Amino acid sequence: MELNTIKPAEGAKHAKRRVGRGIGSGLGKTAGRGHKGQKSRAGGFHKVGFEGGQMPLQRRLPKRGFKSQSLKFNAEVSLTALDKLGLAEVDLLALKQAGLVGQLAKVVKVIKSGELTKAVKLTGIGATEGAKAAIEAAGGSLA
């Protein structure tokens, strides 16, 4: 291969469509825009979602719900999951490595769901009132 023989891949390049250049070009006269109407005029187009004056779909349908963007940074861990984890000290990194919370999680809270038999020390992790009582009853602590 020589530098002077390099060519783009087959079909990668194609000629620009030149409109309004006479009958012989195949795109003369109306230049591919058809006859009359809003779409044939210069600058004649409508905004996205416009339906010719009919009430647009996005306005006909009722507004409903809201999904907070901060939800993806929050996560929950149950007492059962902590028990199965079997670590004496648990922090955010340990939970991420175990796959109990997502990689994006920044705020983690332990919820009272299931039982905890082992003593667990939580660092940088919150807990609900019931979960806190269950952790302390099992001999663990929160920091």
Rank of each mutant, 00 (worst) to 15 (best):
K109A: 07
E51M: 11
Q69V: 08
K72W: 08
T80P: 02
G86S: 14
K106T: 08
A98H: 04
F66Y: 15
V77R: 01
K106G: 07
D91Q: 08
V77A: 02
S68E: 12
L95Q: 01
G99S: 12
Q103G: 11
L93A: 06
A105Q: 03
N74R: 09
V107Q: 01
L92Y: 06
G49Y: 02
T80A: 10
L82Q: 00
V107S: 01
L79I: 13
G52E: 07
E76H: 12
P56Y: 02
Q54N: 14
K109F: 04
L61P: 03
A88I: 08
L104A: 08
K63V: 14
Q58A: 10
A94T: 10
Q69N: 10
A88M: 06
S68H: 12
Q54L: 14
V90P: 00
L100A: 13
K96Q: 11
V108D: 00
L92N: 04
V77Y: 01
I111E: 00
S78H: 09
D91Y: 05
L85H: 01
R59M: 11
A98T: 10
K106V: 07
Q97D: 06
S70R: 15
G99E: 14
L71H: 15
K84E: 07
E89W: 07
V107N: 01
V77E: 00
Q103A: 13
T80I: 04
V77N: 01
V110M: 00
M55G: 10
S78G: 11
E76M: 10
R64V: 10
F50P: 03
F50N: 12
E76Y: 08
A105W: 01
K84G: 04
M55V: 15
K106N: 09
V108L: 06
K72F: 07
E89Q: 13
T80R: 10
N74Q: 13
N74C: 09
D91K: 03
K84L: 04
K63I: 14
F66C: 12
Q54M: 14
L79K: 05
A88G: 06
L61W: 09
L95A: 03
S70M: 14
K112D: 03
R64P: 03
T80H: 09
R60G: 07
Q54F: 13
L57I: 09
K106R: 13
L104C: 05
Q97P: 02
K63A: 15
I111C: 01
L87I: 15
D83Y: 01
D83H: 03
A98S: 12
Q103I: 11
T80C: 06
R64A: 13
